[in-house]
Amino acid sequence: MAKTTIIRGTSQYRSIVTVGFALLGLVVILLPFVMSGFRTFQFTMALLWALGVLSLNMLTGWSGQISLGHSALFGLGSYTTCILVGTYEWNPLLTIPVAALVTFIFGIMIGIPALRLAGLYLALMTLAIGVAFTPVIRRFKEHTGGSMGISIKKKVFPEEIVGLNLDQYLYFLVVIFAVVMFALARNLLKSRVGRAITAMRDNEIPAQTMGIYPARYKTLIFATSSMFAGIAGALYAFVIRFSAPYSFTLTLAIFFLAGLVVGGIGTLAGAVLGGLFIQFVPYYAEEINQSLAGMVFGIIIIVIMVTAPTGVLGLIKKVRARVVTVADPPVVRN
């Protein structure tokens, strides 16, 4: 097959990308009108998981810090929304900034001691946070409802919003948040800050001699990542209208990590693939057997890490590279 080369930034490249995104956009917009309410709900959930994976990616993929506590951060966001709407009867949308703020602050609180922890110990500490979340939630049952959880009444959402039913409304709400959050993450990665964070991950001491202050960037990326997880958790509370301690266990943290590995560590599009994976693989696996999902996840994680550490996205890129070469334009002086 003749191999074509496409240069980034040319009009040819731009038109391909534009057409690609337009098609994707069309599919995303039409999906809830074509699919059943339940399917729409599943895709909404997949996007929520994708946001969870994205948040972990910002931390683990970019800065190389390991977190097994992102289930707790996601849960914290969800509980914030459930408590404010369920107990204090806030408008749901107003709870999102609060959830963002709470998890941002919590992220700083974890991030600061994390500065002194080398990789392994950070994994340990966040693991302990992930495991401790459930009992801590149970302990404060006067606010959290304990083991019974806390719910949001359906009637806080109107039955029909601008002609959309609730499933469709929630789907589009999550899509909008996802588009914005992915765009923000992308901008951050491709900026001075993103370069500083990846530089620190690659080689910390030289990064410091370039004037990068590791403590500052590590804490802030920890907090930003936590905030993203918290917002995703708050949106989860919209969709599920319920928070229970057993929804945010270590298993969820491992699922996020699995999504990250399957999609491709460090990539943005990989997070979406990871989200779809987290939603649909257990769904179909559990139809066969309750335990199958975990087994499949466990095996897939191990196999991918051993054989294809760049994940599914890496494989897609390899296949693409056989057909077409995408190259950067030569660098010239103006």
Binding site: R195, T198, A199, D202, I205, P206, T209
Partner: peptide, 9 residues
């Protein structure tokens, strides 16, 4: 003391 996963630029 380079950053191997970043591009030269």
């Amino acid at each position: 003391g380079l950053f191997p996963s970043n591009t030269v630029l």
